[in-house]
Deep mutational scan, measured.
Amino acid sequence: MDSLVVLVLCLSCLLLLSLWRQSSGRGKLPPGPTPLPVIGNILQIGIKDISKSLTNLSKVYGPVFTLYFGLKPIVVLHGYEAVKEALIDLGEEFSGRGIFPLAERANRGFGIVFSNGKKWKEIRRFSLMTLRNFGMGKRSIEDRVQEEARCLVEELRKTKASPCDPTFILGCAPCNVICSIIFHKRFDYKDQQFLNLMEKLNENIKILSSPWIQICNNFSPIIDYFPGTHNKLLKNVAFMKSYILEKVKEHQESMDMNNPQDFIDCFLMKMEKEKHNQPSEFTIESLENTAVDLFGAGTETTSTTLRYALLLLLKHPEVTAKVQEEIERVIGRNRSPCMQDRSHMPYTDAVVHEVQRYIDLLPTSLPHAVTCDIKFRNYLIPKGTTILISLTSVLHDNKEFPNPEMFDPHHFLDEGGNFKKSKYFMPFSAGKRICVGEALAGMELFLFLTSILQNFNLKSLVDPKNLDTTPVVNGFASVPPFYQLCFIPV
């Protein structure tokens, strides 16, 4: 009986604490739906499609509103004006990374994606500088992407125009580009180590996009005490870190300090320079996690976009025909596509942009946080508050993009057929937390897609009208449904 009384008292205290925290903070924060004790607004949000729920709530509470995930307040920004004001106009104040408990377990605050403060700034600055020195957006990395595009075309030829699921092959190409940047090595598509790495990356994007992960991140005790797919994700990350550590040891034994070959060499050189400046942010643990982040951000996002792009091109054969006509006119058949071609191919450029806009790969991006107490639109948001960005509300804005739910390359073309930029184009987020590999991803999408369409016609196994382009999961990332196609050599 005594234990029951204690339990009831504990629960009562928890409920009172929950109510007090919510009521004391709500006077400062933007308005929002009334949260339930302990669980907050979790029942009012469709976990399978958070973005749709945010759109519905914005119609009631406006472009800036507050939700509670458990006891934790989260300020939501919906629509271009609110997102721009926060991420661009007040970029420094909104540059923090929001709480992501599962990532905390995986990387302990290291790396480039989930770190904060001085650690994040130094690692991000170093990573950007190193990638630029190796030619991100310049010639040397373009050579690597072109080489991988040629290998991709050869792998597709091996399908002999038979029906195939493109998931694996389209994942190999961007993964190999990242391998060449980090390890100075590309792998054969049949290499077992490479296959294991690909498998872990593919599993992780599916797990991260599941409703279960949303629950884990908002009720963090689940991570330590409950079984579930989150444990598989943590094991996959541990596998990748151990693999990278092996490569780091190989580099330490063979590195030429006067001739760095890749990202690992550059990081080890930085560690050597910083060894007298303790404590340094440049450690082996930081290198492991930064490399894992580059793999995660640079492989599955690009391969998922490529997979979605081919599905949309199957669905819209008239678009595919126009792209192939432009390829034939500008590039021809006797040389590989290059980035200089893009400025002469406005329709193809528009298609690449429209694919990214339409699929809305990361509907709410990753959570941000404010780095200080900030007054925002007459609300006071306390330091450390998590900020949720609705990228969907920007990419699918119906004023900027008429009929935003329709796939239409003319969203990025003017009346004369010239490519038209849009400030609403934010597939990689915006501001200080914009994806480090934005330029690389854009290069890969253009070169891989043009190389495929230069060499193959795409054949659907069903009537294009019957192809479903609805994402199968739409949590962290929008993942396309399973499909097969035939690559018919031109």
Score class of each variant (00 low, 15 high):
residue 456 F to M: 02
residue 135 G to C: 11
residue 276 H to V: 08
residue 321 A to E: 14
residue 212 W to V: 07
residue 138 K to S: 11
residue 48 K to R: 14
residue 438 E to D: 09
residue 130 T to E: 08
residue 260 P to N: 08
residue 250 E to P: 03
residue 486 C to L: 06
residue 180 S to P: 01
residue 87 L to P: 02
residue 300 E to W: 12
residue 13 C to A: 09
residue 280 S to Q: 07
residue 126 F to N: 05
residue 197 L to T: 03
residue 202 N to M: 07
residue 187 F to E: 02
residue 394 V to L: 10
residue 6 V to H: 05
residue 144 R to H: 13
residue 88 I to A: 09
residue 91 G to H: 12
residue 255 M to F: 08
residue 463 D to S: 09
residue 208 L to V: 12
residue 275 K to L: 09
residue 437 G to F: 14
residue 282 F to N: 04
residue 50 I to K: 05
residue 11 L to G: 09
residue 379 Y to S: 05
residue 341 D to L: 05
residue 117 G to R: 08
residue 341 D to Y: 07
residue 259 N to K: 09
residue 78 H to C: 09
residue 391 L to A: 14
residue 447 L to T: 05
residue 345 M to V: 02
residue 21 R to C: 09
residue 226 F to I: 11
residue 382 P to N: 04
residue 408 D to C: 07
residue 437 G to M: 05
residue 59 K to Y: 06
residue 134 F to V: 15
residue 43 L to D: 04
residue 231 N to P: 05
residue 256 D to E: 15
residue 200 K to T: 10
residue 167 T to A: 14
residue 218 N to Q: 09
residue 487 F to A: 02
residue 378 N to V: 01
residue 354 E to M: 01
residue 385 T to G: 02
residue 275 K to I: 11
residue 357 R to L: 01
residue 185 K to M: 06
residue 398 N to H: 09
residue 422 S to Q: 05
residue 406 M to V: 13
residue 144 R to M: 11
residue 227 P to Y: 07
residue 446 F to L: 00
residue 243 Y to C: 08
residue 118 K to G: 11
residue 146 Q to H: 05
residue 339 M to I: 08
residue 172 C to T: 04
residue 333 R to S: 15
residue 12 S to R: 00
residue 269 M to Q: 13
residue 154 E to Y: 04
residue 65 F to K: 00
residue 470 T to G: 09
residue 14 L to V: 10
residue 237 V to T: 15
residue 138 K to V: 12
residue 464 P to A: 09
residue 91 G to F: 07
residue 166 P to H: 00
residue 285 E to M: 07
residue 139 R to Q: 12
residue 348 T to S: 05
residue 372 C to A: 09
residue 131 L to R: 03
residue 146 Q to G: 08
residue 94 F to S: 05
residue 259 N to P: 11
residue 97 R to H: 08
residue 371 T to C: 11
residue 328 E to S: 14
residue 354 E to T: 03
residue 376 F to W: 14
residue 256 D to V: 14
residue 141 I to R: 01
residue 420 K to L: 09
residue 388 L to R: 01
residue 131 L to G: 05
residue 225 Y to K: 04
residue 136 M to Y: 15
residue 255 M to V: 10
residue 377 R to E: 02
residue 15 L to P: 02
residue 58 S to P: 03
residue 271 M to R: 09
residue 343 S to M: 07
residue 200 K to N: 10
residue 401 F to R: 04
residue 286 S to L: 11
residue 122 E to V: 13
residue 28 K to D: 08
residue 482 F to M: 15
residue 336 S to Q: 10
residue 191 D to H: 06
residue 61 Y to S: 01
residue 449 L to G: 01
residue 142 E to Y: 04
residue 118 K to M: 08
residue 317 P to T: 09
residue 387 I to E: 01
residue 366 L to T: 06
residue 56 N to L: 10
residue 194 F to G: 03
residue 290 T to L: 14
residue 14 L to Q: 04
residue 161 A to G: 15
residue 386 T to A: 08
residue 116 N to I: 04
residue 98 G to D: 10
residue 217 N to R: 11
residue 110 F to G: 14
residue 438 E to V: 08
residue 380 L to C: 15
residue 377 R to A: 05
residue 417 G to F: 10
residue 379 Y to V: 03
residue 216 C to Y: 12
residue 231 N to G: 08
residue 113 V to Y: 15
residue 95 S to Y: 05
residue 3 S to L: 15
residue 157 R to V: 06
residue 132 R to D: 12
residue 14 L to G: 06
residue 195 L to T: 10
residue 24 S to L: 12
residue 434 I to G: 07
residue 33 P to H: 00
residue 295 F to V: 11
residue 386 T to E: 08
residue 196 N to P: 05
residue 448 F to V: 02
residue 68 Y to P: 00
residue 251 H to Y: 03
residue 136 M to A: 14
residue 80 Y to S: 05
residue 301 T to Y: 13
residue 367 P to H: 03
residue 282 F to C: 07
residue 279 P to V: 14
residue 295 F to R: 00
residue 27 G to R: 10
residue 392 T to W: 03
residue 478 S to E: 04
residue 175 C to S: 05
residue 10 C to N: 02
residue 72 K to W: 05
residue 233 L to R: 03
residue 121 K to A: 10
residue 144 R to N: 09
residue 387 I to Q: 01
residue 88 I to G: 15
residue 355 V to Q: 01
residue 26 R to D: 09
residue 248 V to S: 04
residue 172 C to Y: 03
residue 444 E to K: 04
residue 165 D to I: 00
residue 212 W to P: 02
residue 127 S to Y: 09
residue 263 F to C: 14
residue 383 K to Q: 07
residue 116 N to S: 14
residue 203 E to T: 11
residue 205 I to M: 15
residue 357 R to E: 00
residue 7 L to M: 12
residue 407 F to L: 01
residue 454 Q to P: 00
residue 56 N to S: 08
residue 208 L to E: 14
residue 77 L to Y: 03
residue 365 S to P: 03
residue 488 I to Q: 14
residue 310 L to N: 01
residue 416 G to Q: 12
residue 200 K to R: 13
residue 51 S to K: 11
residue 339 M to D: 08
residue 70 G to Q: 02
residue 187 F to P: 01
residue 9 L to V: 13
residue 185 K to R: 09
residue 45 I to K: 01
residue 287 L to K: 01
residue 386 T to M: 10
residue 417 G to Q: 08
residue 366 L to A: 08
residue 284 I to D: 10
residue 194 F to C: 03
residue 181 I to Y: 10
residue 342 R to F: 04
residue 70 G to K: 01
residue 374 I to V: 13
residue 159 T to E: 05
residue 168 F to T: 10
residue 294 L to A: 01
residue 398 N to L: 08
residue 427 P to V: 07
residue 288 E to Y: 15
residue 114 F to L: 12
residue 200 K to S: 10
residue 259 N to M: 06
residue 149 A to P: 01
residue 276 H to D: 10
residue 308 Y to K: 02
residue 332 G to A: 01
residue 329 R to K: 09
residue 296 G to D: 12
residue 486 C to F: 06
residue 328 E to W: 11
residue 35 P to F: 02
residue 471 P to V: 04
residue 190 K to A: 11
residue 308 Y to P: 00
residue 141 I to P: 02
residue 215 I to Q: 02
residue 13 C to G: 10
residue 69 F to E: 05
residue 108 R to V: 10
residue 2 D to W: 15
residue 11 L to Y: 04
residue 373 D to C: 03
residue 456 F to S: 01
residue 305 T to R: 04
residue 328 E to N: 15
residue 438 E to H: 06
residue 329 R to I: 12
residue 125 R to P: 05
residue 80 Y to A: 05
residue 214 Q to T: 13
residue 179 C to Q: 04
residue 199 E to M: 11
residue 39 I to D: 01
residue 181 I to M: 09
residue 3 S to M: 12
residue 251 H to L: 03
residue 479 V to T: 09
residue 39 I to N: 03
